[in-house]
Design a protein around this nucleic acid. Structure first.
Lengths: 284, 284
DNA sequence: TCGGTCTGTGAAAATCCTGTAACCGCCTAG
DNA sequence: CTAGGCGGTTACAGGATTTTCACAGACCGA
Protein backbone atom coordinates (compact mmCIF):
# COMPACT_ATOMS: atom_id res chain seq x y z
CA UNK A 1 0.00 0.00 0.00
CA UNK A 2 3.03 2.26 -0.10
CA UNK A 3 2.97 4.95 -2.70
CA UNK A 4 6.13 3.60 -4.21
CA UNK A 5 4.18 0.56 -5.19
CA UNK A 6 1.53 2.63 -6.84
CA UNK A 7 4.12 4.46 -8.82
CA UNK A 8 5.84 1.30 -9.85
CA UNK A 9 2.63 -0.31 -10.94
CA UNK A 10 1.56 2.65 -12.97
CA UNK A 11 4.90 3.57 -14.41
CA UNK A 12 4.89 3.44 -18.16
CA UNK A 13 7.33 3.97 -20.94
CA UNK A 14 5.69 6.46 -23.22
CA UNK A 15 6.71 7.58 -26.67
CA UNK A 16 5.55 10.96 -27.88
CA UNK A 17 5.66 11.77 -31.54
CA UNK A 18 5.03 15.45 -31.84
CA UNK A 19 6.60 18.48 -33.47
CA UNK A 20 5.39 21.08 -31.01
CA UNK A 21 8.45 21.42 -28.81
CA UNK A 22 6.70 23.62 -26.27
CA UNK A 23 3.95 21.08 -25.76
CA UNK A 24 6.40 18.22 -25.63
CA UNK A 25 8.47 20.01 -23.05
CA UNK A 26 5.56 20.65 -20.74
CA UNK A 27 4.37 17.11 -21.17
CA UNK A 28 7.70 15.42 -20.56
CA UNK A 29 8.20 17.51 -17.46
CA UNK A 30 4.99 16.13 -16.04
CA UNK A 31 5.91 12.64 -17.09
CA UNK A 32 9.22 12.99 -15.31
CA UNK A 33 7.47 13.99 -12.18
CA UNK A 34 5.34 10.89 -12.40
CA UNK A 35 8.41 8.78 -12.84
CA UNK A 36 7.41 7.61 -16.30
CA UNK A 37 10.06 7.04 -18.89
CA UNK A 38 9.50 8.89 -22.13
CA UNK A 39 10.92 8.97 -25.59
CA UNK A 40 10.36 11.83 -27.98
CA UNK A 41 10.08 10.95 -31.62
CA UNK A 42 10.00 13.36 -34.50
CA UNK A 43 8.75 11.37 -37.41
CA UNK A 44 7.32 8.13 -38.66
CA UNK A 45 9.52 5.75 -36.75
CA UNK A 46 9.47 2.27 -38.28
CA UNK A 47 7.26 -0.16 -36.47
CA UNK A 48 10.16 -2.47 -35.72
CA UNK A 49 11.85 0.29 -33.75
CA UNK A 50 8.65 0.88 -31.85
CA UNK A 51 8.55 -2.77 -30.97
CA UNK A 52 12.10 -2.61 -29.70
CA UNK A 53 11.16 0.26 -27.43
CA UNK A 54 8.75 -1.93 -25.50
CA UNK A 55 6.36 0.93 -25.04
CA UNK A 56 3.53 1.18 -22.59
CA UNK A 57 1.81 3.87 -24.62
CA UNK A 58 2.26 5.87 -27.78
CA UNK A 59 1.09 9.44 -28.22
CA UNK A 60 1.12 10.69 -31.74
CA UNK A 61 0.39 13.92 -33.55
CA UNK A 62 -0.88 13.09 -37.00
CA UNK A 63 -0.03 16.57 -38.27
CA UNK A 64 3.62 15.72 -38.02
CA UNK A 65 3.33 12.98 -40.59
CA UNK A 66 1.39 14.69 -43.34
CA UNK A 67 0.45 12.31 -46.13
CA UNK A 68 1.97 9.42 -44.29
CA UNK A 69 -0.33 9.86 -41.30
CA UNK A 70 -3.12 7.41 -42.15
CA UNK A 71 -0.97 4.67 -43.63
CA UNK A 72 1.37 4.94 -40.68
CA UNK A 73 -1.47 4.82 -38.21
CA UNK A 74 -2.82 1.80 -39.97
CA UNK A 75 0.49 0.03 -39.88
CA UNK A 76 1.12 0.74 -36.23
CA UNK A 77 -2.26 -0.40 -35.07
CA UNK A 78 -2.09 -3.52 -37.20
CA UNK A 79 1.38 -4.53 -36.06
CA UNK A 80 0.99 -3.50 -32.44
CA UNK A 81 -2.67 -3.88 -31.62
CA UNK A 82 -1.96 -4.14 -27.94
CA UNK A 83 -0.04 -0.89 -27.76
CA UNK A 84 -2.14 1.89 -26.26
CA UNK A 85 -2.30 4.50 -28.98
CA UNK A 86 -3.46 8.03 -28.31
CA UNK A 87 -3.75 10.56 -31.06
CA UNK A 88 -3.13 14.08 -29.87
CA UNK A 89 -3.47 16.48 -32.70
CA UNK A 90 -4.88 19.86 -33.72
CA UNK A 91 -8.24 20.68 -35.22
CA UNK A 92 -9.96 17.79 -36.90
CA UNK A 93 -13.31 16.81 -38.31
CA UNK A 94 -15.64 14.23 -36.85
CA UNK A 95 -14.96 12.04 -39.83
CA UNK A 96 -11.23 12.13 -39.21
CA UNK A 97 -11.63 11.29 -35.57
CA UNK A 98 -13.96 8.43 -36.32
CA UNK A 99 -11.56 7.16 -38.91
CA UNK A 100 -8.66 7.28 -36.52
CA UNK A 101 -10.54 5.55 -33.74
CA UNK A 102 -11.90 2.86 -36.06
CA UNK A 103 -8.43 2.32 -37.36
CA UNK A 104 -7.26 1.33 -33.94
CA UNK A 105 -6.52 4.45 -31.96
CA UNK A 106 -7.65 4.23 -28.37
CA UNK A 107 -8.29 7.89 -27.88
CA UNK A 108 -8.20 11.11 -29.82
CA UNK A 109 -7.34 14.28 -27.98
CA UNK A 110 -7.65 17.65 -29.63
CA UNK A 111 -4.88 20.17 -29.12
CA UNK A 112 -4.56 22.48 -27.41
CA UNK A 113 -5.13 20.28 -24.43
CA UNK A 114 -4.07 20.21 -20.84
CA UNK A 115 -1.19 17.79 -20.32
CA UNK A 116 -2.83 16.47 -17.19
CA UNK A 117 -5.84 15.39 -19.15
CA UNK A 118 -3.68 13.75 -21.76
CA UNK A 119 -1.88 11.84 -19.03
CA UNK A 120 -5.16 10.82 -17.44
CA UNK A 121 -6.31 9.51 -20.79
CA UNK A 122 -3.10 7.59 -21.28
CA UNK A 123 -3.58 6.06 -17.87
CA UNK A 124 -7.16 5.17 -18.67
CA UNK A 125 -6.16 3.28 -21.80
CA UNK A 126 -3.22 1.61 -20.11
CA UNK A 127 -5.41 0.59 -17.20
CA UNK A 128 -7.90 -0.97 -19.55
CA UNK A 129 -5.15 -2.87 -21.26
CA UNK A 130 -3.62 -4.09 -18.07
CA UNK A 131 -6.96 -5.34 -16.89
CA UNK A 132 -7.08 -7.72 -19.74
CA UNK A 133 -3.51 -8.86 -19.87
CA UNK A 134 -3.63 -10.02 -16.33
CA UNK A 135 -0.72 -10.19 -13.94
CA UNK A 136 2.84 -10.10 -15.13
CA UNK A 137 3.92 -13.40 -16.49
CA UNK A 138 7.55 -12.55 -16.03
CA UNK A 139 7.36 -12.14 -12.30
CA UNK A 140 10.14 -14.57 -11.46
CA UNK A 141 12.94 -13.93 -9.02
CA UNK A 142 16.03 -16.10 -8.88
CA UNK A 143 18.33 -16.42 -5.90
CA UNK A 144 20.76 -19.21 -5.30
CA UNK A 145 18.92 -22.42 -6.05
CA UNK A 146 15.58 -20.83 -5.39
CA UNK A 147 13.10 -19.60 -7.91
CA UNK A 148 10.27 -17.42 -6.70
CA UNK A 149 7.26 -17.32 -8.96
CA UNK A 150 4.68 -14.73 -8.22
CA UNK A 151 2.17 -16.27 -10.62
CA UNK A 152 2.26 -19.47 -8.61
CA UNK A 153 2.39 -17.99 -5.15
CA UNK A 154 5.17 -20.43 -4.65
CA UNK A 155 8.93 -20.90 -4.67
CA UNK A 156 10.75 -23.78 -6.34
CA UNK A 157 14.11 -25.47 -6.11
CA UNK A 158 15.21 -27.91 -8.80
CA UNK A 159 11.71 -27.77 -10.16
CA UNK A 160 10.24 -28.91 -6.90
CA UNK A 161 7.91 -26.85 -4.84
CA UNK A 162 9.19 -25.52 -1.55
CA UNK A 163 5.64 -25.87 -0.35
CA UNK A 164 5.25 -22.46 1.17
CA UNK A 165 2.05 -21.23 2.72
CA UNK A 166 0.64 -17.91 1.73
CA UNK A 167 2.30 -15.90 4.46
CA UNK A 168 5.57 -17.67 4.01
CA UNK A 169 5.46 -16.86 0.36
CA UNK A 170 4.62 -13.22 0.91
CA UNK A 171 7.47 -12.98 3.34
CA UNK A 172 10.07 -14.52 1.09
CA UNK A 173 8.84 -12.46 -1.79
CA UNK A 174 9.20 -9.27 0.16
CA UNK A 175 12.63 -10.19 1.42
CA UNK A 176 13.85 -11.33 -1.96
CA UNK A 177 12.57 -8.19 -3.62
CA UNK A 178 14.73 -6.22 -1.24
CA UNK A 179 17.68 -8.53 -1.77
CA UNK A 180 20.79 -7.31 -0.01
CA UNK A 181 18.95 -4.72 2.03
CA UNK A 182 18.19 -5.21 5.70
CA UNK A 183 14.51 -4.93 6.47
CA UNK A 184 13.38 -4.08 9.95
CA UNK A 185 10.75 -6.21 11.58
CA UNK A 186 8.35 -3.33 11.75
CA UNK A 187 8.60 -2.76 8.05
CA UNK A 188 8.29 -6.43 7.22
CA UNK A 189 5.24 -6.79 9.37
CA UNK A 190 3.72 -3.64 7.99
CA UNK A 191 4.12 -4.78 4.42
CA UNK A 192 3.27 -8.45 4.74
CA UNK A 193 0.56 -8.33 7.36
CA UNK A 194 -0.79 -5.00 6.23
CA UNK A 195 -1.08 -3.36 9.59
CA UNK A 196 1.27 -2.17 12.27
CA UNK A 197 2.98 -4.67 14.50
CA UNK A 198 1.92 -4.90 18.10
CA UNK A 199 4.71 -4.48 20.58
CA UNK A 200 6.41 -7.74 21.29
CA UNK A 201 4.91 -9.60 18.37
CA UNK A 202 7.16 -12.44 17.27
CA UNK A 203 5.30 -13.44 14.15
CA UNK A 204 8.03 -12.29 11.83
CA UNK A 205 10.64 -14.33 13.69
CA UNK A 206 8.46 -17.38 13.65
CA UNK A 207 7.86 -17.14 9.94
CA UNK A 208 11.49 -16.56 9.22
CA UNK A 209 12.18 -19.75 11.06
CA UNK A 210 9.59 -21.65 9.06
CA UNK A 211 11.01 -20.27 5.87
CA UNK A 212 14.56 -21.17 6.79
CA UNK A 213 13.49 -24.65 7.69
CA UNK A 214 11.70 -25.22 4.42
CA UNK A 215 14.48 -23.69 2.37
CA UNK A 216 17.01 -25.84 4.14
CA UNK A 217 15.04 -28.89 3.16
CA UNK A 218 15.17 -28.15 -0.55
CA UNK A 219 18.45 -26.31 -0.75
CA UNK A 220 20.69 -27.47 2.10
CA UNK A 221 23.90 -25.86 0.91
CA UNK A 222 22.65 -22.34 0.87
CA UNK A 223 21.78 -19.69 3.36
CA UNK A 224 19.15 -17.24 2.30
CA UNK A 225 17.91 -15.26 5.25
CA UNK A 226 20.44 -13.50 7.45
CA UNK A 227 19.74 -12.08 10.88
CA UNK A 228 20.91 -8.63 11.79
CA UNK A 229 20.83 -8.49 15.52
CA UNK A 230 18.71 -5.71 16.86
CA UNK A 231 17.63 -4.69 13.39
CA UNK A 232 15.89 -7.23 11.24
CA UNK A 233 16.54 -9.62 8.38
CA UNK A 234 18.32 -9.52 5.07
CA UNK A 235 17.82 -11.81 2.12
CA UNK A 236 20.86 -12.91 0.17
CA UNK A 237 21.63 -16.27 -1.36
CA UNK A 238 24.95 -17.42 0.01
CA UNK A 239 26.69 -20.73 -0.34
CA UNK A 240 27.25 -22.35 3.03
CA UNK A 241 31.06 -22.51 2.70
CA UNK A 242 31.20 -18.91 1.75
CA UNK A 243 29.13 -17.89 4.68
CA UNK A 244 31.33 -19.78 7.08
CA UNK A 245 34.39 -18.06 5.77
CA UNK A 246 32.71 -14.75 6.11
CA UNK A 247 31.71 -15.55 9.65
CA UNK A 248 35.23 -16.65 10.50
CA UNK A 249 36.68 -13.49 9.07
CA UNK A 250 34.26 -11.37 11.03
CA UNK A 251 34.99 -13.34 14.19
CA UNK A 252 38.72 -12.85 13.81
CA UNK A 253 37.99 -9.17 13.97
CA UNK A 254 39.90 -8.31 10.85
CA UNK A 255 38.71 -5.22 9.06
CA UNK A 256 37.85 -6.79 5.74
CA UNK A 257 35.39 -4.60 3.86
CA UNK A 258 35.01 -6.95 0.93
CA UNK A 259 33.51 -9.92 2.66
CA UNK A 260 30.44 -10.29 0.54
CA UNK A 261 31.99 -10.35 -2.94
CA UNK A 262 33.08 -13.93 -2.59
CA UNK A 263 34.86 -15.67 -5.44
CA UNK A 264 33.08 -18.99 -5.34
CA UNK A 265 29.72 -17.87 -6.57
CA UNK A 266 28.69 -14.94 -8.67
CA UNK A 267 27.19 -12.90 -5.91
CA UNK A 268 24.85 -10.08 -6.63
CA UNK A 269 26.72 -6.82 -6.51
CA UNK A 270 25.35 -5.16 -3.44
CA UNK A 271 23.98 -1.68 -3.88
CA UNK A 272 26.07 0.99 -2.15
CA UNK A 273 24.12 1.71 0.99
CA UNK A 274 23.61 -1.94 1.68
CA UNK A 275 26.21 -2.23 4.36
CA UNK A 276 25.16 -0.74 7.60
CA UNK A 277 26.43 -0.83 11.10
CA UNK A 278 28.79 -3.40 12.43
CA UNK A 279 29.43 -6.45 10.37
CA UNK A 280 26.77 -8.97 11.17
CA UNK A 281 28.21 -12.07 12.69
CA UNK A 282 25.05 -13.99 12.92
CA UNK A 283 24.52 -16.11 9.91
CA UNK A 284 22.04 -18.56 11.25
CA UNK B 1 -14.76 -17.88 -38.31
CA UNK B 2 -18.13 -17.46 -39.97
CA UNK B 3 -19.31 -14.00 -40.84
CA UNK B 4 -21.98 -14.24 -38.21
CA UNK B 5 -19.12 -14.18 -35.76
CA UNK B 6 -18.00 -10.84 -37.05
CA UNK B 7 -21.37 -9.37 -36.32
CA UNK B 8 -21.56 -11.09 -33.00
CA UNK B 9 -18.12 -9.95 -32.05
CA UNK B 10 -18.90 -6.32 -32.71
CA UNK B 11 -22.43 -6.29 -31.36
CA UNK B 12 -22.66 -4.78 -27.94
CA UNK B 13 -25.35 -4.28 -25.42
CA UNK B 14 -25.05 -0.65 -24.46
CA UNK B 15 -26.74 1.20 -21.65
CA UNK B 16 -27.18 4.93 -21.96
CA UNK B 17 -27.92 6.98 -18.91
CA UNK B 18 -28.87 10.40 -20.19
CA UNK B 19 -31.68 12.88 -19.76
CA UNK B 20 -31.40 14.55 -23.15
CA UNK B 21 -34.14 12.75 -25.06
CA UNK B 22 -33.19 14.29 -28.36
CA UNK B 23 -29.63 13.09 -28.10
CA UNK B 24 -30.68 9.68 -26.89
CA UNK B 25 -33.09 9.33 -29.77
CA UNK B 26 -30.47 10.12 -32.37
CA UNK B 27 -28.01 7.84 -30.69
CA UNK B 28 -30.30 4.88 -30.31
CA UNK B 29 -31.33 5.17 -33.91
CA UNK B 30 -27.74 4.76 -34.95
CA UNK B 31 -27.22 1.93 -32.51
CA UNK B 32 -30.23 0.18 -33.98
CA UNK B 33 -28.77 0.50 -37.43
CA UNK B 34 -25.61 -1.14 -36.17
CA UNK B 35 -27.60 -3.94 -34.64
CA UNK B 36 -26.52 -3.12 -31.10
CA UNK B 37 -28.89 -3.67 -28.27
CA UNK B 38 -29.43 -0.65 -26.09
CA UNK B 39 -31.04 0.20 -22.80
CA UNK B 40 -31.90 3.73 -21.78
CA UNK B 41 -31.61 4.56 -18.12
CA UNK B 42 -32.74 7.72 -16.43
CA UNK B 43 -31.03 7.73 -13.08
CA UNK B 44 -28.53 6.09 -10.80
CA UNK B 45 -29.41 2.48 -11.45
CA UNK B 46 -28.07 0.22 -8.68
CA UNK B 47 -24.94 -1.63 -9.59
CA UNK B 48 -26.60 -5.01 -9.12
CA UNK B 49 -29.09 -4.16 -11.86
CA UNK B 50 -26.26 -3.13 -14.12
CA UNK B 51 -24.66 -6.48 -13.50
CA UNK B 52 -27.83 -8.27 -14.42
CA UNK B 53 -27.91 -6.41 -17.72
CA UNK B 54 -24.60 -7.98 -18.79
CA UNK B 55 -23.58 -4.81 -20.55
CA UNK B 56 -20.91 -4.40 -23.13
CA UNK B 57 -20.60 -0.69 -22.50
CA UNK B 58 -22.11 2.02 -20.36
CA UNK B 59 -22.52 5.61 -21.48
CA UNK B 60 -23.37 8.02 -18.73
CA UNK B 61 -24.19 11.70 -18.44
CA UNK B 62 -22.99 12.89 -15.07
CA UNK B 63 -25.27 15.92 -15.20
CA UNK B 64 -28.24 13.63 -14.77
CA UNK B 65 -27.07 12.51 -11.35
CA UNK B 66 -26.24 15.80 -9.68
CA UNK B 67 -24.65 15.29 -6.29
CA UNK B 68 -24.68 11.57 -6.71
CA UNK B 69 -22.52 11.70 -9.81
CA UNK B 70 -19.07 11.14 -8.34
CA UNK B 71 -20.03 8.58 -5.72
CA UNK B 72 -22.01 6.70 -8.30
CA UNK B 73 -19.17 6.77 -10.77
CA UNK B 74 -16.85 5.55 -8.09
CA UNK B 75 -19.12 2.70 -7.15
CA UNK B 76 -19.68 1.58 -10.71
CA UNK B 77 -16.04 1.57 -11.64
CA UNK B 78 -15.08 -0.19 -8.45
CA UNK B 79 -17.70 -2.90 -8.71
CA UNK B 80 -17.49 -3.34 -12.46
CA UNK B 81 -13.94 -2.50 -13.46
CA UNK B 82 -14.23 -4.51 -16.61
CA UNK B 83 -17.25 -2.63 -17.91
CA UNK B 84 -16.33 -0.08 -20.57
CA UNK B 85 -17.48 3.21 -19.14
CA UNK B 86 -17.81 6.32 -21.26
CA UNK B 87 -18.82 9.62 -19.76
CA UNK B 88 -20.71 11.79 -22.19
CA UNK B 89 -21.63 15.04 -20.58
CA UNK B 90 -21.82 18.81 -21.11
CA UNK B 91 -19.23 21.44 -20.35
CA UNK B 92 -16.62 20.41 -17.85
CA UNK B 93 -13.28 21.51 -16.47
CA UNK B 94 -10.01 19.76 -17.00
CA UNK B 95 -9.99 18.83 -13.34
CA UNK B 96 -13.36 17.15 -13.63
CA UNK B 97 -12.34 15.19 -16.67
CA UNK B 98 -9.12 14.08 -15.03
CA UNK B 99 -11.01 13.07 -11.94
CA UNK B 100 -13.49 11.04 -13.94
CA UNK B 101 -10.83 9.29 -15.95
CA UNK B 102 -8.70 8.55 -12.92
CA UNK B 103 -11.72 7.22 -11.16
CA UNK B 104 -12.08 4.56 -13.79
CA UNK B 105 -13.88 6.05 -16.77
CA UNK B 106 -12.44 4.92 -20.08
CA UNK B 107 -13.31 8.01 -22.04
CA UNK B 108 -14.89 11.40 -21.54
CA UNK B 109 -16.80 12.92 -24.39
CA UNK B 110 -18.04 16.48 -24.25
CA UNK B 111 -21.53 17.21 -25.47
CA UNK B 112 -22.61 18.33 -27.88
CA UNK B 113 -20.94 15.58 -29.81
CA UNK B 114 -21.55 13.67 -32.98
CA UNK B 115 -23.14 10.30 -32.23
CA UNK B 116 -20.86 8.68 -34.74
CA UNK B 117 -17.84 9.78 -32.78
CA UNK B 118 -19.36 8.57 -29.55
CA UNK B 119 -19.98 5.20 -31.12
CA UNK B 120 -16.46 5.06 -32.48
CA UNK B 121 -15.16 5.77 -29.00
CA UNK B 122 -17.35 3.06 -27.49
CA UNK B 123 -15.99 0.68 -30.08
CA UNK B 124 -12.45 1.73 -29.30
CA UNK B 125 -12.86 0.96 -25.61
CA UNK B 126 -14.70 -2.29 -26.25
CA UNK B 127 -12.01 -3.33 -28.70
CA UNK B 128 -9.33 -2.65 -26.15
CA UNK B 129 -11.17 -4.74 -23.61
CA UNK B 130 -11.71 -7.61 -25.97
CA UNK B 131 -8.05 -7.60 -26.86
CA UNK B 132 -7.22 -8.33 -23.32
CA UNK B 133 -9.73 -10.99 -22.65
CA UNK B 134 -7.60 -13.02 -24.86
CA UNK B 135 -7.42 -14.51 -28.29
CA UNK B 136 -10.00 -16.91 -26.99
CA UNK B 137 -10.69 -17.79 -30.58
CA UNK B 138 -8.50 -20.74 -29.73
CA UNK B 139 -11.88 -22.36 -29.54
CA UNK B 140 -10.50 -25.66 -28.32
CA UNK B 141 -8.34 -26.27 -25.30
CA UNK B 142 -6.94 -29.67 -24.49
CA UNK B 143 -5.89 -30.77 -21.04
CA UNK B 144 -5.50 -34.34 -19.93
CA UNK B 145 -8.51 -36.20 -21.20
CA UNK B 146 -10.58 -33.07 -21.35
CA UNK B 147 -11.41 -31.02 -24.38
CA UNK B 148 -12.88 -27.60 -23.84
CA UNK B 149 -14.76 -26.18 -26.76
CA UNK B 150 -15.67 -22.54 -26.57
CA UNK B 151 -17.90 -22.80 -29.59
CA UNK B 152 -20.02 -25.40 -27.82
CA UNK B 153 -19.98 -23.91 -24.37
CA UNK B 154 -19.10 -27.39 -23.29
CA UNK B 155 -16.27 -29.69 -22.34
CA UNK B 156 -15.83 -33.27 -23.54
CA UNK B 157 -14.01 -36.41 -22.51
CA UNK B 158 -13.68 -39.34 -24.88
CA UNK B 159 -16.18 -37.57 -27.07
CA UNK B 160 -18.75 -37.53 -24.33
CA UNK B 161 -20.06 -34.29 -22.97
CA UNK B 162 -19.15 -33.43 -19.41
CA UNK B 163 -22.54 -31.83 -19.18
CA UNK B 164 -21.45 -28.55 -17.71
CA UNK B 165 -23.83 -25.73 -17.00
CA UNK B 166 -23.14 -22.24 -18.19
CA UNK B 167 -21.35 -21.07 -15.06
CA UNK B 168 -19.41 -24.28 -14.74
CA UNK B 169 -18.23 -23.90 -18.28
CA UNK B 170 -17.21 -20.29 -17.84
CA UNK B 171 -15.27 -21.27 -14.78
CA UNK B 172 -13.38 -24.13 -16.35
CA UNK B 173 -12.69 -22.07 -19.40
CA UNK B 174 -11.19 -19.28 -17.34
CA UNK B 175 -9.11 -21.68 -15.29
CA UNK B 176 -7.93 -23.63 -18.29
CA UNK B 177 -7.01 -20.47 -20.15
CA UNK B 178 -4.70 -19.60 -17.28
CA UNK B 179 -3.33 -23.12 -17.10
CA UNK B 180 -0.52 -23.41 -14.61
CA UNK B 181 -1.17 -20.06 -13.05
CA UNK B 182 -2.83 -19.69 -9.70
CA UNK B 183 -5.94 -17.57 -9.86
CA UNK B 184 -7.19 -15.92 -6.74
CA UNK B 185 -10.84 -16.25 -5.88
CA UNK B 186 -11.37 -12.55 -6.23
CA UNK B 187 -10.05 -12.61 -9.74
CA UNK B 188 -12.03 -15.66 -10.69
CA UNK B 189 -15.20 -14.17 -9.35
CA UNK B 190 -14.49 -10.87 -11.01
CA UNK B 191 -13.97 -12.45 -14.39
CA UNK B 192 -16.67 -15.10 -14.35
CA UNK B 193 -19.39 -13.33 -12.45
CA UNK B 194 -18.46 -9.91 -13.77
CA UNK B 195 -18.49 -7.99 -10.55
CA UNK B 196 -16.72 -7.75 -7.25
CA UNK B 197 -16.98 -10.64 -4.86
CA UNK B 198 -18.70 -9.94 -1.59
CA UNK B 199 -16.67 -10.82 1.46
CA UNK B 200 -17.28 -14.38 2.45
CA UNK B 201 -18.89 -15.44 -0.79
CA UNK B 202 -18.33 -19.14 -1.40
CA UNK B 203 -19.72 -19.36 -4.89
CA UNK B 204 -16.34 -20.01 -6.44
CA UNK B 205 -15.65 -22.90 -4.07
CA UNK B 206 -19.03 -24.41 -4.66
CA UNK B 207 -18.64 -24.28 -8.41
CA UNK B 208 -15.16 -25.70 -8.21
CA UNK B 209 -16.64 -28.59 -6.32
CA UNK B 210 -19.33 -29.11 -8.92
CA UNK B 211 -16.71 -29.02 -11.63
CA UNK B 212 -14.44 -31.47 -9.88
CA UNK B 213 -17.29 -33.82 -9.32
CA UNK B 214 -18.31 -33.78 -12.96
CA UNK B 215 -14.75 -34.08 -14.18
CA UNK B 216 -14.15 -36.99 -11.87
CA UNK B 217 -17.13 -38.74 -13.35
CA UNK B 218 -15.80 -38.60 -16.90
CA UNK B 219 -12.09 -38.70 -16.22
CA UNK B 220 -11.46 -40.49 -12.94
CA UNK B 221 -7.71 -40.85 -13.31
CA UNK B 222 -6.94 -37.18 -13.60
CA UNK B 223 -6.85 -34.21 -11.35
CA UNK B 224 -7.53 -30.91 -12.97
CA UNK B 225 -8.20 -28.28 -10.39
CA UNK B 226 -5.69 -27.78 -7.62
CA UNK B 227 -6.32 -25.80 -4.47
CA UNK B 228 -3.80 -23.30 -3.22
CA UNK B 229 -4.67 -22.83 0.37
CA UNK B 230 -5.35 -19.25 1.26
CA UNK B 231 -4.96 -18.15 -2.33
CA UNK B 232 -7.15 -19.72 -4.95
CA UNK B 233 -7.15 -22.40 -7.60
CA UNK B 234 -4.86 -23.55 -10.36
CA UNK B 235 -5.79 -25.60 -13.39
CA UNK B 236 -3.37 -28.30 -14.50
CA UNK B 237 -4.14 -31.73 -15.85
CA UNK B 238 -2.33 -34.31 -13.79
CA UNK B 239 -2.52 -38.05 -13.83
CA UNK B 240 -3.55 -39.43 -10.47
CA UNK B 241 -0.56 -41.79 -10.36
CA UNK B 242 1.81 -38.92 -10.98
CA UNK B 243 0.30 -36.97 -8.19
CA UNK B 244 0.73 -39.87 -5.82
CA UNK B 245 4.34 -40.31 -6.77
CA UNK B 246 4.92 -36.66 -6.28
CA UNK B 247 3.34 -36.85 -2.88
CA UNK B 248 5.48 -39.83 -1.98
CA UNK B 249 8.60 -38.05 -3.14
CA UNK B 250 7.82 -35.10 -1.02
CA UNK B 251 7.08 -37.29 1.96
CA UNK B 252 10.28 -39.28 1.68
CA UNK B 253 12.21 -36.19 0.76
CA UNK B 254 14.37 -38.19 -1.61
CA UNK B 255 15.15 -36.86 -5.02
CA UNK B 256 13.60 -39.07 -7.64
CA UNK B 257 14.91 -38.50 -11.12
CA UNK B 258 12.60 -37.91 -14.01
CA UNK B 259 9.38 -37.71 -12.15
CA UNK B 260 8.61 -34.11 -11.58
CA UNK B 261 9.00 -31.97 -14.64
CA UNK B 262 7.62 -28.71 -13.36
CA UNK B 263 5.42 -27.49 -10.59
CA UNK B 264 4.05 -30.61 -9.15
CA UNK B 265 1.50 -31.31 -6.56
CA UNK B 266 3.16 -32.16 -3.34
CA UNK B 267 2.00 -33.07 0.07
CA UNK B 268 3.37 -31.62 3.24
CA UNK B 269 6.28 -33.86 4.09
CA UNK B 270 5.19 -35.01 7.49
CA UNK B 271 7.83 -36.52 9.72
CA UNK B 272 7.99 -40.28 10.22
CA UNK B 273 4.25 -40.73 10.39
CA UNK B 274 4.45 -41.24 6.63
CA UNK B 275 0.73 -41.36 6.21
CA UNK B 276 -0.64 -42.79 3.01
CA UNK B 277 -3.22 -40.19 2.63
CA UNK B 278 -5.31 -39.72 -0.44
CA UNK B 279 -3.50 -38.28 -3.44
CA UNK B 280 -2.98 -34.67 -2.57
CA UNK B 281 -5.24 -32.36 -4.43
CA UNK B 282 -4.26 -29.40 -2.37
CA UNK B 283 -1.26 -27.28 -2.96
CA UNK B 284 -0.44 -25.03 -0.06
C1' DT C 1 32.67 -12.16 32.55
C1' DC C 2 27.82 -10.60 33.79
C1' DG C 3 23.29 -9.15 33.10
C1' DG C 4 19.89 -7.48 30.16
C1' DT C 5 18.11 -7.97 25.50
C1' DC C 6 17.19 -10.05 21.46
C1' DT C 7 16.48 -14.23 18.65
C1' DG C 8 15.72 -19.36 17.74
C1' DT C 9 12.75 -23.25 18.83
C1' DG C 10 9.06 -26.30 19.60
C1' DA C 11 4.50 -26.92 20.66
C1' DA C 12 -0.14 -25.67 22.09
C1' DA C 13 -4.03 -22.72 21.24
C1' DA C 14 -6.70 -19.93 18.40
C1' DT C 15 -8.09 -18.80 13.71
C1' DC C 16 -8.97 -19.25 9.29
C1' DC C 17 -10.00 -21.85 5.00
C1' DT C 18 -11.94 -25.32 2.27
C1' DG C 19 -14.82 -29.39 1.10
C1' DT C 20 -19.31 -30.87 1.52
C1' DA C 21 -24.04 -31.24 1.54
C1' DA C 22 -28.44 -29.54 2.17
C1' DC C 23 -31.50 -25.86 1.17
C1' DC C 24 -33.83 -21.84 -1.21
C1' DG C 25 -35.57 -19.06 -4.84
C1' DC C 26 -36.05 -18.39 -9.93
C1' DC C 27 -37.01 -19.75 -14.26
C1' DT C 28 -38.54 -22.81 -17.84
C1' DA C 29 -40.49 -26.54 -20.01
C1' DG C 30 -43.92 -29.51 -19.70
C1' DC D 1 -49.06 -24.87 -11.98
C1' DT D 2 -45.57 -28.17 -11.09
C1' DA D 3 -41.22 -30.68 -11.43
C1' DG D 4 -36.58 -30.14 -12.38
C1' DG D 5 -32.41 -27.74 -13.51
C1' DC D 6 -29.51 -24.07 -12.19
C1' DG D 7 -27.36 -20.48 -9.70
C1' DG D 8 -26.55 -19.04 -5.31
C1' DT D 9 -26.52 -19.24 0.06
C1' DT D 10 -25.71 -21.19 4.41
C1' DA D 11 -24.12 -24.23 8.14
C1' DC D 12 -20.91 -27.44 9.61
C1' DA D 13 -16.78 -30.29 10.26
C1' DG D 14 -12.15 -31.38 9.49
C1' DG D 15 -7.82 -29.57 8.43
C1' DA D 16 -4.30 -26.24 7.52
C1' DT D 17 -2.35 -22.18 8.90
C1' DT D 18 -1.29 -18.49 11.97
C1' DT D 19 -0.52 -16.74 16.62
C1' DT D 20 0.86 -17.04 21.01
C1' DC D 21 3.87 -18.72 24.75
C1' DA D 22 7.56 -20.21 27.48
C1' DC D 23 12.08 -21.28 27.48
C1' DA D 24 16.79 -21.83 25.84
C1' DG D 25 20.56 -19.90 23.53
C1' DA D 26 23.02 -15.74 21.43
C1' DC D 27 24.65 -11.28 21.42
C1' DC D 28 26.13 -6.71 23.17
C1' DG D 29 27.85 -3.29 26.18
C1' DA D 30 29.85 -2.44 30.42
Amino acid sequence: MSDTNITAADALRVAVSDGDTGFVQVLTKRLDRLGWEHIVLTGAVPVERLVAMRLGAFVIDLALLGQEAWPYLERVSRELPSLPLIICTGQSTVAQRVRGLRMGADDWVTKPCHPEELIARIEAVARRRRLSEGPDVAAVVLAGEIEIRADQFQAFAHGRSVDLTRREFELIQLLAAAEGRVLEREEIYQRVWGYTMAHGDRSVDVFVRKLRSKLLRVSPDWFYIHTHFGVGYRFAAELAVEAEIAAAVAASDLPVPGVAPAPVVAAEPKPPGADERKPARTFA
